[in-house]
Nucleic acid binder design. Structure first.
Lengths: 208, 208
DNA sequence: CGATTTTTTGACCAGTCTGGTCGGTAATTG
DNA sequence: CAATTACCGACCAGACTGGTCAAAAAATCG
């Protein structure tokens, strides 16, 4: 179906993908506008519907595409690599940066999928989402070495608290970085800051 | 301006307020539909524009109204009451529950304000938001007794980590509870669960 | 080069939805 | 009773919707 789209030059393809991801992420399936997408992508309406039969087709393509990207570039690279949750998260942050650089709106898009409730796509979306979520959960949190955690607090709680703290750390960083262009970001300082928080978490939640 | 609205019976008024809060929270100012609001509120279009001159007028009223509610019922009740961050957060959770019960979409609405970017309301919104945010920050995190924290980690980091973990705990609880009707929620179990996490945080981040 | 095919354009379609109006009715007040 | 206020919902012009299509432009091929 999308043969003519995948044949496009990478730059143009990415621009269309990112424009569409951004629009769907911002407004959800129902309120997203194909007109806004073509405007942001710098192509004509006809072109978009030359690549994709319908809006729904485009949306589901993006689901599969982002699912593939995140699985390949993100989940598979961290899964089961190390039982230490904090080491895993550190690697995850690096990988996330790389994916973000190419597809800035991709994580917003995926996050939005979990609250998407347009009837038109509910069926097709449900399965894809479930497998993606459970796979991600497995890669990030599966097969953890819980014996590293301190023992006077249930491991489940330690894991949750670390996860939540880091998730919010990620949100804050993204908000801070959000406005700047990708080039202007001081990655070194960012990493140093992140490591400081990781070290604190290790001190507080791990066996000493 | 809104004399006729504030004169309404409380039940009807709250229904309109909640319907509008929900719509604005879900779609943002620009895409929110007054038609949806009147439908959800069970009133006619004419009535809504009898109470509020324009959509913008309604929106700004909601900003001020929620700001007032949250300040009175939430911020003022926790501010400076105790230097212990965890005690403060525990009280905050209780108060939040009470506000949520009457205005379920209120926190979603306020959260959405921080990412609102419709040009029509940018000016009016900016000031209100800044004062609300800084006041909330002051009440929740101002005048903390940092000496309670362990000393081998910078207090700033401890504070951040606790804040983030609890914020995400709140998100998760809200998601879990979200579907159920307000009556069905087992508040006792919820509080016990919350206390377990608070205790863990105290063990890990406070002086022993 | 010309002929054929593929890609791309943007004006255009019918239809939905927008914020807001207004003449009329129902309820309340004095 | 009259006068005022609260409320209804059909209605407005105009913006925007997803999607089409004839024609132009570009690429491919012999």
């Amino acid at each position: 179906m999308h043969d003519n789209f995948v044949g496009l030059k990478e730059e143009k393809r990415d621009k269309i993908i990112n424009a569409a991801l951004l629009e769907f992420a911002a407004k959800g399936y129902g309120l997203a506008s194909t007109n806004e997408i073509v405007k942001a992508a710098g192509i004509s309406k006809g072109a978009l519907f030359h690549y994709f039969a319908t809006k729904k087709d485009l949306f589901l393509f993006l689901c599969d595409y982002t699912s593939g990207v995140v699985s390949r570039e993100f989940y598979e690279q961290i899964g089961h690599c190390d039982g230490d949750l904090l080491i895993r998260y550190r690697r995850a942050a690096m990988l996330k940066g790389a994916v973000y650089k190419r597809y800035p709106p991709i994580f917003e898009f995926i996050k939005r999928l979990t609250t998407e409730n347009a009837a038109e796509i509910a069926g097709e979306l449900k399965d894809r989402l479930e497998t993606m979520v459970s796979y991600g959960y497995e890669c990030l949190l599966g097969n953890l070495d819980l014996s590293l955690f301190r023992e006077d607090v249930p491991a489940r709680i330690v894991r949750d608290l670390i996860t939540w703290a880091l998730e919010n750390y990620g949100n804050r960083s993204q908000a801070l970085v959000g406005d700047q262009s990708i080039e202007d970001i001081d990655v070194t300082a960012l990493n140093a800051d992140f490591d400081e928080y990781l070290e604190a978490l290790r001190k507080c939640f791990y066996k000493q």
